[in-house]
Design a protein around this nucleic acid. Structure first.
Length: 543
RNA sequence: GCGCCUAUAGCUCAAUUGGAUAGAGCAACGGACUUCGGAUCCGUUGGCUGCGGGUUCGAAUCCUGCUAGGCGCGCCA
């Protein structure tokens, strides 16, 4: 791992020169003309050491002893710019070719991580907003796997509580209409066509049977049918979007085995609960919340707050070292209470990370499409995937960082699918694979980089190699800050460099350089393949 | 009212978390190849980083006061 080595060399030098100072080594690909890689470490140290950055850069430079570099230079305010030696590039090509995608994988670190995402209530089909959370979670899971984590993807099914009740009552209302019985539409009911479809389906299968039962029992049974229907529908949508969950966790299971009662007992044994107005309260203000939260209602029923605490306690007991929840911005207000609950139960504060992604706004014909399950007006994820295709839709979501608002222009997505960058990536991949095919036709055999003699690199080749090497740092960075949108950007940049090279230099008619260039093509394909896998998009050899 | 998110080229977005000349794609204009895929490449035009102050060697990024849009502020989930 070249990046790791470079960082190690710099860190070592810093440690020798300034004992006791610990600092994170940063590496970046500098603007053209400033070397292959660079670091701002002297600038950062300048603050701590209160010394001019150029002076520090000089000291570090003097102290570094390594044959990784061809040369090291200092520039303006205090950058260190590194030029890699040809042997380093050769060594990189050899190991990447040998280990293939695994080159970028870290050894297992025995840390179990759970990512919980989508988790939309099973009261309606997934809409495009759910797609955004889905992509972030799915890609993050793929990424963390490369970094040695054992990752589990979980969907939390809120199949208890008032939402699902109102869902069942809504179906029942339409079912009764099918039986020619007119009742009052339930308050906060759901009006989408899919509700009517489920009602019709039940009517067609069971006739008027439920209309003759005690209402409560009828609704209870209809709830089961409707719920299962919706969950199945959601599973199909996710599958079409390329997302597979390892685990489906049902909220109702928390109500079994007195799990909620156990959680309540834990809280009661802390100084953080009290009773007021017949309700049991959690003193979340002790953990920075702006008001306390009810755990058990005056009626004796647990609140969502208590079941969610129970759910997270359950995660802890399943042995995860880290749990990541991905929520839409409409759940923002729940972050502080949730983190307070974690601490209130005595779990480590950093056990839970929460990623918030901003709401998706849909625009059609220049007008915003209001999305609501209650009114039944929204664009489903299925419709989107059908219009633009799975890979294009995935990249469309992935390209926006989670904390920016996403304005989704439906017309644009429908009419300009060709302009989606995913095609550029896939095209690049297809072109490269074609070089090998063409080589076979012409009787040119690739013998492997290990047998090639010393390298001779032009500017374009060096650019590609630097990007390939830097993927190591990209993955590392994203695993720390969860900024999955960096992956498609880096992939596009790599593809751009590859195309620039492709345009300017021939591979199969390069004489003595042909083998070296085939090695570059081969390792580029390996790296693209890894990036495509992390993003969950298809590798296409023929477009 | 309070908390958080956002505001960057005509449009959609970046900017390695305080670093080099703020970069890409689309759009517009001008170029490039008789043999590995033109769904490509190269170049030009386009910026008071929403507005005003401050912090320092250095600010799109930090602090502060505004403006505009969004999300939230239940014994709902």
């Amino acid at each position: 791992m070249i990046i790791e080595k470079i960082k190690w060399v710099i860190a070592n030098s810093v440690e020798n020169l300034y004992p006791g100072i610990s600092i994170q080594i940063d590496l970046e690909i500098p603007p053209e003309g400033f070397g292959d890689f660079s670091t701002t470490i002297p600038l950062k140290l300048a603050k701590i050491l209160k010394k001019p950055p150029i002076k520090i850069a000089e000291e570090i430079l003097q102290n570094i002893k390594s044959d990784i570099f061809q040369s090291i230079q200092i520039s303006k305010p205090g950058y260190l710019n590194f030029l890699l030696s040809l042997d380093t590039y050769k060594e990189f090509l050899v190991s990447l070719e040998k280990d293939k995608e695994k080159y970028f994988y870290k050894k297992p670190n025995d840390k179990k991580v759970q990512i919980e995402f989508v988790s939309a209530n099973p009261t309606g089909p997934l809409h495009v907003g759910n797609g955004r959370g889905g992509i972030i979670g799915d890609v993050l899971a793929n990424l963390l796997k490369t970094q040695g984590f054992e990752v589990e993807k979980e969907y939390y099914v809120n199949d208890a509580g008032s939402k699902i009740d109102s869902f069942a009552e809504s179906i029942f209302y339409y079912y009764l209409l099918d039986c020619d019985i007119k009742t009052n539409f339930p308050e906060d009911g759901y009006k989408g066509d899919y509700i009517k479809d489920i009602a019709k389906k039940i009517f067609n299968e069971s006739g008027k049977r439920f209309s003759k039962m005690v209402k409560k029992n009828a609704i209870e049974q209809i709830k089961e049918v409707g719920k299962n229907f919706m969950i199945n529908d959601i599973k199909l949508s996710l599958e079409a979007f390329g997302i597979n969950f390892d685990s489906w966790f049902y909220e109702t299971t928390l109500y079994k085995n007195e799990e909620i009662q156990k959680t309540l007992n834990i809280f009661k044994n802390t100084p953080y609960t009290y009773t007021s107005d017949n309700a049991i309260w959690f003193k979340s203000t002790s953990f920075g919340d702006d008001k306390d939260r009810v755990l058990v209602r005056g009626s004796g029923e647990p609140t969502y707050t208590l079941t969610d605490a129970t759910y997270h306690r359950n995660k802890w007991e399943r042995g995860f070292h880290k749990v990541i929840d991905i929520w839409g911005a409409d759940h923002f207000g729940h972050i502080t209470p949730m983190k307070a609950l974690i601490q209130g139960m005595g779990l480590p504060k950093d056990f839970l990370d929460i990623i918030i992604y901003q709401i998706v706004h849909l625009f059609e014909d220049g007008k915003e499409v209001m999305m609501s399950k209650h009114t039944g007006s929204f664009v489903t994820l299925d419709e989107l995937i059908e219009e633009v295709g799975k890979d294009a839709a995935r990249i469309f979501f992935l390209l926006k960082s989670a904390d920016t608002h996403l304005n989704f222009d439906v017309n644009l997505a429908k009419s300009r699918t060709i302009e989606n960058p995913v095609y550029y990536m896939q095209y690049t991949f297809a072109r490269l694979t074609n070089i090998f095919k063409e080589g076979i036709k012409r009787g040119i055999k690739y013998e492997g980089i290990a047998r090639a003699e010393s390298l001779k690199l032009n500017k374009e080749e060096r650019n590609i190699l630097n990007s390939l090497i830097f993927v190591e740092e990209l993955l590392n960075k994203v695993s720390n800050d969860y900024s999955v949108s960096k992956i498609p950007f880096a992939t596009l940049e790599l593809a751009q460099k590859i195309n620039a090279f492709y345009q300017k230099h021939k591979v199969l008619q390069a004489g003595k350089l042909t083998q070296q260039r085939l090695a570059l093509v081969n390792t580029s394909l390996i790296t693209l393949s890894l990036l495509f896998d992390v993003m969950g998009i298809k590798k296409i050899e023929k477009m």
